[in-house]
C-alpha cells in the first residue's frame, strides 16, 4: 500500500525523529520505503531517512508491503501526527 503523508513538526525529519521512526519500522515484518523528491529509501535505515532530510510541511510517500502493513501504517501515521512527541 502507498500513502501520502505530511511532516508537521517544526524541526522536520531530523535525527531524533528519524530515530523514533526507525524504531517503529523495525518492529514490523513488512518492507517499508519512503519516497521524497523522487528519492526512495528503506525506512528501516536511519542513514536512509536522514539523507532525505524531509523538512517541515513537506509531503512524502510511504510504501509498505507485507503481512503487517496495516498495523505498521497506523503506528507510523500516529507518530507523525503526534509530531514525534515534540511540542511543536
Amino acid at each position: 500500500m502507498i500513502k501520502e503523508l505530511k511532516i508537521i513538526n517544526k524541526l522536520g525529519l531530523h535525527a531524533r525523529a528519524s530515530s523514533k521512526l526507525v524504531e517503529i519500522t523495525n518492529k514490523f515484518e513488512s518492507e517499508i520505503f519512503i519516497e521524497f523528491n523522487s528519492v526512495s529509501v528503506n525506512a528501516k535505515s536511519i542513514l536512509g531517512l536522514l539523507s532525505l532530510a524531509i523538512p517541515f510541511g513537506s509531503n512524502f510517500h510511504i510504501n509498505i508491503k507485507g503481512i503487517d502493513e496495516e498495523e505498521a501504517l497506523i503506528e507510523i501515521e500516529n507518530l507523525i501526527k503526534n509530531k514525534f512527541g515534540e511540542s511543536e
Binding site: R16, S19, E23, L47, G48
Partner: peptide
C-alpha cells in the same frame, strides 16, 4: 537520545 542515535546507526542493516 544522542547515544541511542549512535547505536541506531551502528545497528543500521543497510
Amino acid at each position: 537520545d544522542i547515544l541511542d542515535f549512535n547505536i541506531l546507526i551502528l545497528e543500521d542493516e543497510i
